[in-house]
């Protein structure tokens, strides 16, 4: 191990940054949905501002990984570890973007929009948060059993999203003047659903890292 001690230190550093970014994305989604339910515009603004920090962290991970590839010329699992770090970081950044978009919808809806917020959105959020937690544990421990579980949860989120969408479509028929607001709700559902997709991508990347082959968990 001593032969590449410094390299290992750098790899560990990237891992820590990714875990931090994951916790950031987790916090963003949690707060964004909370802000949506409570029409808390201040909290929504905080989520949007916080996203800039997460973008920076994603850049930092990318730059560190690219520099390591250039300087250390890694091969085999080391190379995969860095490629996967870049990909996972990008997924996490997109997950945080989805949370930010929910916050934007919250602001768009405003304080007294009078729209019923579906409780399923909260359920979707809970599963999406479980997914990010699982994906990051799978990444931390390079555990493909955990990674595989993400596929089941993703199906669950997809199913819930379809259901919400059908209900919202019915509402547009009965309450056409609220279409703008209902669309924001549909978007929010879509953002959570995409959040879950990215978590599944992380699972696929972990399987690639461990097995050296590509897998499709979707």
């Amino acid at each position: 191990m001593a032969a590449r001690g410094q390299f290992q230190v750098e790899l560990d550093k990237i891992k820590i940054l990714i875990i931090e970014l994951a916790h950031g994305a987790e916090k963003s989604l949690s707060q964004a949905v909370e802000a949506l339910y409570n029409s808390d515009l201040e909290l929504a603004k905080e989520v949007i501002a916080y996203d800039k920090l997460l973008d920076k962290k994603d850049l930092e991970i990318n730059e560190t990984a690219i520099l390591l590839i250039a300087k250390q010329q890694p091969v085999a699992s080391d190379l995969r570890r860095l490629i996967v770090a870049i990909r996972i970081s990008s997924d996490l950044e997109r997950m945080a973007d989805n949370a930010k978009n929910i916050a934007k919808s919250t602001i768009h809806l405003g304080k007294d929009h009078g729209i019923k917020i579906h409780s399923e959105l909260k359920d979707m959020r809970d599963i999406a948060l479980k997914m990010i937690d699982l994906s990051i544990k799978a990444y931390e421990n390079e555990d493909i059993t955990l990674a595989r579980k993400l596929a089941e949860l993703d199906d669950l989120v997809d199913g819930m999203y379809s259901k919400i969408l059908t209900e919202l479509l019915e509402e547009t028929a009965t309450d056409p003047q609220k279409i703008q607001h209902i669309m924001q709700m549909a978007f929010s559902g879509r953002y959570i659903e995409r959040f879950g997709d990215h978590a599944t991508n992380i699972g696929e990347n972990i399987m690639y890292l461990v097995k050296g082959e590509s897998f499709n968990l979707n």
Partner: peptide
């Protein structure tokens, strides 16, 4: 092989 090519020994 993995350990050698990734510089873990040798």
């Amino acid at each position: 092989t993995e350990d050698y090519i990734t510089g873990r020994f040798g």
